[in-house]
């Protein structure tokens, strides 16, 4: 079997204001979000190498933050202007090792998801190895309604609808081919799975943890801070 590498995306444009910090460097109970996102993969038996994608202007800062947090990664790669570009750049960075068969599995995780504990990782890697790709997800337990100018116009069943999470795990060769095909077609995926799925490769969904939230809204920072304090 080839090697499994984890790529944690931390190049988000969270620092638009002057003197602002990227949200992945925000402190959560004494440890930055990105360090909490990286930590589950560093010592995980399924993962051989861990990389972080940082904004081109934050490579040094990212290295410093991770070192201060005691997170030893194999490398920090420069990100692109979008999530898709960052993923594509990272996968292309490993193209030679993927094509030679040295890297078999690539795992993509969002650097703004600090609550993942790695519990489903072995299952995800196993399913990706067998089928092509596997992602974490949770069932959508919400009521959906269409709204027009005249008010509610119809309720939508959420049966079979799930919220996609990360980690998203793929056979490395499939991922490389998917990103090259996306580039040729000018396709920009919203997440890794959407780029792979358009190739007709089945992506299995493994039930994840609802607590594996992505920090987007201020409330998410508050919730994440309380979740990391929870026993």
């Amino acid at each position: 079997m080839g090697r499994t590498i984890a790529v944690v995306l931390g190049a988000g444009s969270g620092a638009r204001a002057r003197h602002a910090v990227n949200k992945v460097y925000l402190d959560l109970d004494g440890l930055p979000v990105i360090a909490r996102a990286v930590r589950p993969f560093i010592d995980h038996p399924e993962v051989d190498e861990t990389y972080v994608v940082a904004a081109p202007g934050e490579l040094g800062a990212c290295a410093g933050v991770l070192a201060d947090a005691g997170c030893v990664v194999h490398g920090i790669l420069p990100g692109g202007p979008s999530r898709h570009a960052s993923e594509a750049g990272a996968v292309e960075h490993f193209a030679d090792r993927i094509e030679s068969g040295e890297i078999e599995i690539v795992l993509i995780h969002d650097g703004a998801r600090p609550i993942y504990h790695g519990a489903s990782l072995a299952t995800l890697v196993d399913r990706a190895r067998k089928g092509g790709g596997a992602i974490c997800g949770v069932p959508l337990n919400e009521e959906l309604v269409s709204v027009t100018d005249h008010g509610a116009s119809g309720w939508r069943s959420t049966e079979n609808l799930w919220c996609a999470q990360t980690p998203q795990v793929f056979q490395a060769a499939v991922l490389l081919e998917a990103f090259r095909a996306a580039k040729a077609a000018g396709f920009e995926g919203t997440d890794t799975a959407s780029t792979v799925e358009r190739m007709g490769v089945p992506v299995e969904v493994v039930e994840g943890d609802p607590r594996n939230i992505k920090i987007t809204f201020p409330e998410d920072v508050v919730l994440a801070a309380s979740l990391v304090r929870a026993p």
Binding site: R16, A17, V21, V222
Partner: peptide, 29 residues
């Protein structure tokens, strides 16, 4: 106090937010 861009429900877009920490506890955003 730290500034960071987060999605504001009220503004409906990503805006600059100020996060106020007391020690390592998040007090207010």
């Amino acid at each position: 106090k730290v500034k960071s861009s987060l999605m504001c429900q009220n503004c409906g877009r990503q805006t600059s937010h100020e996060l106020h920490y007391v020690g390592s506890s998040l007090h207010e955003i």
